[in-house]
Amino acid sequence: MPTHTCSWCGHKSDGTTVSCPACGATIDARNVVTESGWSELPGRKDMAKLQFGDSFCQIEGNYVPVADMNLAGQDWVYFAHHVLLWKDPQVNITTMGLKGAWKRLLAGMPLVMTQAAGPGHIAFSRDAPGEMIALPLQPGQAVDVREHLFLVATGNVTYDWFQSNIWFTTRNGNETETHYPIGMFMDRFYAPNAPGLLLLHSAGNAFVRSLQPNQTILVKPTSLLFKDPSVQMQLHIERPAGTWSSWRSWGNRYLWLRLYGPGRVAVQSAYTHMEDNGRNITGHSGATEQRWG
């Protein structure tokens, strides 16, 4: 008889275990929510164990956590090959076919996705201090993830990608440069028929917020971690008052990503530097603009 509902993933369990068996969140942890409505990831005890199919995943470490998977014979996972940390010799790694290889190549996205089949152990980690985010996906549920943040997904989660359509152009003499503040593409993970598990790695801390229908928020584009597909995105250009616009190094502007609800959005606290050469914007995707003063 389920007596506990996980505050992070909604999984119902009997509450007798230390951690949620679906996402590893500590059962007795308080939900830490800021006054503005951002939720921190739920606490997770070192060596927390979660289950998917007949397989298990143990999350080890605190600074740069490791996902140590014990794959059952019929289960498999896929990942970008550079996140592999170690494996048992008998775990076989093969290539997973991806569509649109030319576009992925041009966009700097991983061209090769690798898959590993059980039985055996295989472990993954990334290259920056941060948090491991376990996103159990229910049948019919999808999530959009900014490129290069995905760590590993189970075989029953499909992988696709779509154009982010967030861009602006600047001109330098006769050359036009196109900038993609959140990347040219976003990854989409979808569980069509059976529950699946998606693991992401955030740089720094991760915070999640649920937006109401038509509620909007501005976030640093490079801080975006994931969003529900129902959340829409748009570029937002903000020009402050009282500055001299010819300071090219800065461009006299703030570039934001505007997110519209309904749905969940998540950001990471250690984001990468956003590419902007400060030159005048000559074109952009659909955007809102604010001039102060």
Partner: peptide, 25 residues
């Protein structure tokens, strides 16, 4: 990856007896 050639992965096989220490980052 067929037409695109693909990539190579180099992994280290450690064989005992003895201790092995790794770093996650």
């Amino acid at each position: 990856t067929g037409f695109f050639g693909g990539t190579g992965m180099n992994l280290a096989r450690m064989t005992g007896p003895g201790r092995v220490g790794i770093q996650s980052m």
